[in-house]
Simulated scan of single mutants.
Amino acid sequence: MSAIPQPSRPAPRSRNTFAQAAAKTTATPETVEPEAAATPSAAPATAARSATSPATPRQRKAASAPVKPTSEKKRKAQTTDILLSLEEELKDRMVAALEHTRPRTGIKSQQVFIRTAIDQLCTKLETQYNNGEPFPAPADEIAI
């Protein structure tokens, strides 16, 4: 058997709540418990490192970074989410087309690819069937 001690296993992720994670990242270095004290079977190198710097670089950065309001979102105004299921063959075809045409089209993500495709098809249908004008919204009683 090796003289190297077995590493301690981290606690399961299911026990860690968002509140606990936020408390850990916003805690000051004085309140962060060193890893060596939390795990008695830690290697001596870990204990020496924890004693010199109780907070990890991520914790120090989080403590010094300004806190963003939770209401701030990265989503564009007036957008909605849809669930889209694709056959695997169509998805693979989309990914291949996206990857091979990226330098020419500038489309870098699947979302932009899908939005562009929807816009182009709507424009085509409006030109073909409605004199180039957007179709009016469907009546309330029509379920789509």
Rank of each mutant, 00 (worst) to 15 (best):
residue 85 S to L: 01
residue 64 S to V: 08
residue 29 P to T: 03
residue 94 M to L: 15
residue 120 Q to N: 04
residue 139 A to R: 12
residue 122 C to W: 02
residue 50 S to R: 06
residue 5 P to T: 12
residue 3 A to H: 05
residue 16 N to I: 15
residue 88 E to G: 02
residue 61 K to G: 06
residue 32 V to E: 09
residue 138 P to K: 07
residue 97 A to F: 08
residue 72 E to A: 07
residue 93 R to A: 08
residue 16 N to K: 11
residue 81 D to V: 13
residue 35 E to Q: 07
residue 129 Y to W: 12
residue 29 P to C: 12
residue 13 R to K: 14
residue 74 K to H: 02
residue 8 S to D: 09
residue 64 S to Q: 13
residue 73 K to E: 15
residue 84 L to W: 12
residue 58 R to M: 12
residue 17 T to I: 04
residue 122 C to N: 04
residue 39 T to R: 14
residue 24 K to S: 06
residue 82 I to D: 10
residue 111 Q to N: 15
residue 21 A to E: 09
residue 80 T to L: 09
residue 86 L to N: 11
residue 90 L to Q: 03
residue 142 I to G: 03
residue 46 T to A: 02
residue 66 P to E: 14
residue 26 T to L: 15
residue 125 L to Y: 14
residue 54 P to F: 10
residue 76 K to D: 10
residue 66 P to Q: 07
residue 89 E to D: 11
residue 2 S to I: 09
residue 68 K to Q: 06
residue 88 E to F: 00
residue 15 R to L: 15
residue 9 R to L: 07
residue 137 A to N: 07
residue 92 D to T: 11
residue 52 T to I: 01
residue 46 T to P: 02
residue 75 R to G: 03
residue 28 T to D: 13
residue 119 D to Y: 11
residue 16 N to G: 01
residue 120 Q to H: 13
residue 30 E to P: 01
residue 20 Q to D: 13
residue 5 P to Q: 14
residue 93 R to D: 12
residue 54 P to D: 06
residue 41 S to I: 01
residue 136 P to N: 01
residue 4 I to G: 00
residue 77 A to H: 10
residue 14 S to W: 11
residue 83 L to A: 09
residue 8 S to A: 10
residue 11 A to P: 01
residue 13 R to L: 07
residue 96 A to R: 14
residue 12 P to H: 04
residue 95 V to C: 03
residue 109 S to G: 06
residue 81 D to S: 08
residue 37 A to K: 06
residue 91 K to Q: 00
residue 54 P to G: 08
residue 83 L to N: 09
residue 119 D to P: 00
residue 115 R to F: 05
residue 100 H to T: 12
residue 119 D to C: 11
residue 59 Q to H: 04
residue 137 A to Q: 13
residue 82 I to T: 03
residue 143 A to G: 03
residue 115 R to W: 02
residue 11 A to N: 08
residue 72 E to T: 12
residue 37 A to P: 02
residue 142 I to T: 11
residue 22 A to G: 12
residue 51 A to H: 11
residue 96 A to I: 09
residue 117 A to K: 02
residue 109 S to Y: 00
residue 73 K to M: 08
residue 128 Q to K: 14
residue 58 R to C: 02
residue 127 T to D: 08
residue 111 Q to M: 00
residue 82 I to Y: 11
residue 44 P to W: 00
residue 93 R to C: 00
residue 26 T to S: 15
residue 34 P to T: 14
residue 118 I to P: 01
residue 80 T to H: 10
